[in-house]
Design a protein around this nucleic acid. Structure first.
Lengths: 217, 217
DNA sequence: ACGTGTGAACCGATTCACAGCA
DNA sequence: TGCTGTGAATCGGTTCACACGT
């Protein structure tokens, strides 16, 4: 989607590598539930559509985690990936826009296993303010900067209609948000460097499906 | 995310190109609403994080749509992109899993402008079956194959818990579904060739945000 | 023997830079 | 002059293929 580039002072890995690491972690956790203890790069990448060389190379950027001739110990690799990805403490998220999508995300059960939790939700609809959704109280937009600052929240989620997304993003960054997951179908432009924005645009994804439908053999 | 590769008999463009075309289309429509009539590659790519050369090259794969020395006529380019992407008729979508996320998608207002519409929804929860959500009646899973076949539906959306996603995907493909947008956080493996699966995994996206948060300067 | 880890080769995608046209 | 369209150059990411360790 949009060019996403953020570099640390030291080594700089492309977001693609990191996304694949998250995928590996996700599937390793599934394997762990199935009580698989050791897995080879060949086996794990059969499920994903990724080559085994890619898997090994991705890991090699960060260290040596396998045993030659054997494979990878699932629980060990999970721990190592969690270290790499920064899953060593809880990460709080502030969500703006408690419409249908925002409410769905507030109740999404996939976050806790990655130590992610939405701890604050904001909307400008008087009818929603004060209500609790999935245990999170909806507050007014005016309260947002204070809540974000007080809680030291660094991750924001934008679920507002497109015309409001840009200004919400700016206000979030002003309050201290360092990275944003944007569900609004617009491009957000931020002046500040070092803010990472990821976009989830379902209509664009579907559009791509339609293109390939038309072109299929 | 996963390696997504589908080729037509003739020219084969990477999904990345197609996703960018959808992005261009989305932003062009926004420009049209703001009554912008002509735009240069420089101007439109300032909003997105894409180089103007990239924009011009992407379009050049499909034809010549601009005027040298002038730029691109917004309404003309919109029409051309709609042709390229296949937005010449309505595309029906079958959704499985009417939980929070499924319900949110049923009410999502961003689809119609791309001639996408969810026309069928399925769940195995007796309490949901028979109810209408955003005007779509929820049917039982048993009815799915028949409804998909009868309606000639080719696009599926999976919003079920991860452990059910694989089998739902297989049943969808068996019923005639040709491409799938998967929201369940698992890898889906399909034997059939020529089926395009796109994955939306919010936890993975957030994971990537967290990684860059940790690494920031 | 087996599967990892990795430099080297490869390939595709992005960017450059300028010719071509309004 | 200004901006498009596009071959050529570049860059980065993926794959290959094999040395290495168990």
């Amino acid at each position: 989607m949009q060019k996403e580039k953020v570099c640390s002072k030291k080594k700089c890995f492309s977001p693609e590598v990191i996304k694949r690491l998250s995928l590996y972690l996700r599937d390793l956790k599934n394997l762990q539930e199935q009580e698989v203890e050791v897995i080879s790069s060949d086996e794990i990448t059969k499920m994903l559509d990724i080559s085994s060389a890619q898997f090994r190379k991705d890991l090699s950027y960060f260290g040596e985690f396998g045993k030659r001739g054997v494979g990878y110990e699932v629980s060990f690799l999970i721990r190592e990936l969690e270290k790499i990805l920064g899953i060593y403490r809880w990460w709080d998220i502030a969500l703006v826009g408690v419409g249908r999508l925002g409410s769905a995300l507030l109740g999404f059960s996939g976050f806790p296993q990655f130590k992610l939790r939405i701890t604050a939700a904001f909307d400008n609809d008087r009818k929603k303010i004060g209500k609790a959704i999935s245990g999170v109280e909806v507050k007014s937009l005016e309260e947002m900067p204070a809540v974000i600052k007080k809680g030291g929240i660094e991750i924001g989620m934008i679920c507002v209609p497109p015309q409001f997304a840009q200004s919400i993003a700016e206000r979030m960054v002003g309050a201290g948000i360092k990275s944003i997951l944007n569900f609004a179908p617009v491009s957000i432009k931020l002046p500040a460097e070092g803010i990472y924005i990821a976009n989830v645009d379902m209509a664009c994804e579907l559009q791509t499906l339609v293109y390939f439908l038309n072109r299929r053999h």
